[in-house]
């Protein structure tokens, strides 16, 4: 199989930094690593399998009502993910709140179905969906890493910055409270885009 299907969405056609899809949920769940990783996994699974299912039935969907058919398939998968999260990871599912439900309207999923799964065979569609979910997850984890490290001094809930450094304990360090506020996520994505485009000239906009 063509390797490009898997490699491209991760860097050159990254859904977040290049195609600008799925930003909505990407920013809200990245204050801590744990919810970000759970979110990334959920989106990858839903994107992969919805592309797969739509691709299986692509020749039988009437063109006029395809959006509703796609939404129903995606919503079914999201309900499954939500029920599993509530059963096995209740704390994280509470932290993610409405953003699990909002996977339904995550533009990556509809975007990949419209742009790829409707015109391709099931297996490449599955790979394409998984790769796009992975590219999305990569940015999510990178954002959450920076925000949790500088915002709370922890990684995945474990204290990494020594407690003796903090000024309350006579040290010199303070957590940067700005990092866990919503605007920080936007500015960080802007910086990631800046870095990526400095290295890949063909992405620069006129």
């Amino acid at each position: 199989m063509d390797k490009k299907i898997f490699i491209e969405p991760i860097f050159l056609k990254n859904p977040i930094t290049v195609l600008v899809l799925g930003i909505c949920s990407a920013l809200a769940v990245t204050t801590k690593l744990e919810p970000a990783i759970v979110m990334a996994l959920s989106v990858t699974i839903v994107t992969g399998f919805s592309s797969f299912i739509i691709s299986l039935i692509r020749n039988t969907i009437p063109n006029r009502i395809r959006i509703i058919v796609q939404l129903v398939v995606v919503a079914m998968l999201v309900i499954l993910v939500d029920q599993i999260l509530q059963a096995y990871a209740y704390e994280v599912s509470k932290q993610l709140s409405v953003f699990v439900g909002l996977i339904i309207t995550n533009c990556i999923i509809m975007g990949r179905i419209e742009a790829y799964a409707l015109g391709n065979k099931p297996i490449p569609s599955l790979v394409d969906g998984l790769a796009n979910g992975f590219g999305y997850g990569l940015i999510l984890v990178a954002l959450a890493f920076v925000r949790e490290l500088f915002g709370s001094g922890t990684l995945y809930g474990i204290q990494v910055i020594p407690l003796s450094w903090y000024s309350v304990n006579g040290g010199f360090y303070e957590n940067n409270g700005f990092m866990i506020l919503p605007p920080a996520a936007l500015i960080l994505v802007g910086l990631i885009i800046w870095i990526q485009r400095s290295f890949t000239k063909e992405l620069i906009e006129k």
Partner: peptide, 23 residues
């Protein structure tokens, strides 16, 4: 604007700054 930041990049940063104002 610096070339790699043009378009999408600066838009994100502007939205971030607007977010600070709304806070």
């Amino acid at each position: 604007i610096p070339a790699p930041l043009r378009g999408l990049g600066i838009t994100f940063i502007v939205v971030g700054l607007m977010g600070i104002a709304f806070m």
